[in-house]
Amino acid sequence: MAAPTTTERPATPSTQDLAPARKGRVGASLLTVLAWIVGIGFFFPILWMVLTAFKQEADAYTTPPKLFFTPTLDQFRAVFDAGIGPYLLNSLFATVVSTILVLVLATPAAFAVSLRPVKKVQDVLFFFISTKMLPVVAAIVPIYVVVNDIGMLDNIWTLIVLYTAMNLPIAVWMMRSFFQEVPKELLEAASMDGASTARSLREVVLPVISPGMAATALICVIFAWNEFFFAVNLTAARAATVPVFLVGFITSEGLYFAKLCAAATLAALPVVIAGWIAQNKLVQGLSFGAVK
C-alpha cells in the first residue's frame, strides 16, 4: 500500500550526506504515505459497510471482525425481499422530477440575475439565499397542516414540490455563476449577426453553460435523494423514500448487520456515484457559487 516513491532507498538517519533536495524527497514521501493512510482510514467505515453487505450474518458478528470471507449476494436479495423496490422507485421519481423542475425554473431565473439582469439583482439573490438559511423545522408544522387539509399526505408530488423549493435557491446561485462565465463578446457577436435572443441563447449560451447545468443537476440529485425530514413526516406506506425505508429496517431488523449494510449500501450508492462525478463542482454548489 506504500507509495512507490518510498521504495527507492530507505532514508538513512544521518543527515550530513543528504542534500536538501534529498531531504525534501523523503519528507514528501512520508507526506504521501500519510495522505494515503488518512484517506483510506477515513473511508474505511464505508468500505467496511460495503464488505459487510456481502457477508453472511454469521461472518458479520465475529470478534475480531473478519476481513476475509466468502462473498454472497444473499443480503441484497433479502433487502429486495423486504420490499426496498417501491421505495427506490419513489426516491428515483421524486429526485428526477424535482431536479428537472429545478432546472426548468432556475435556468431562466439565473439568466435574469446574470446576463440580462433585472433591477435589484442583489435583493433577488439575497431573497433566494435567505430561504436556505431558515430552518425547515420551523415550517414543517404549517406544511403538515396544509398538506393534510388538501389530502396530499403520503403523496409523492408533495415531496416533489418541497424538494424543488429546497434546491431552487442553490440552483439559481450556481447557474448564475456559470452564466457569468459566458464571454460577453460571444453574446455581442451573436446579436450583431442579428440572432434573436432565443437563438443566441440556444446556440451561444447553452453550449457554454451545459457542463455547469449538469453539475447543478447532480447536486440537486444528491440533496433530493438524501432528504429525510420531509419524507419521514409527510409520507407513509405509499410515497415513502429510501431513507424512510432504512428507518423501518433498523427497528425491525436491528440485529442483522449484514442486511442493514446491504440496505445502506443500496441507499447510498446512487448519490455517491453522482457526487463522484460532480466532485469538482461540489464546493461551488454548496457555497452558493461563492467558491469556485
Binding site: F42, F43, N226, F228, L246, V272, A274, G275, L282
Partner: peptide, 19 residues
C-alpha cells in the same frame, strides 16, 4: 485519495447514521 475523502459527505445521512 480525494475521491475517498469526500465520500462520507455524499453518503445518505440516514445510512451514515445507521452505519
Amino acid at each position: 485519495i480525494r475521491t475517498l475523502l469526500i465520500t462520507p459527505f455524499l453518503i445518505t445521512p440516514v445510512a451514515a447514521a445507521l452505519l
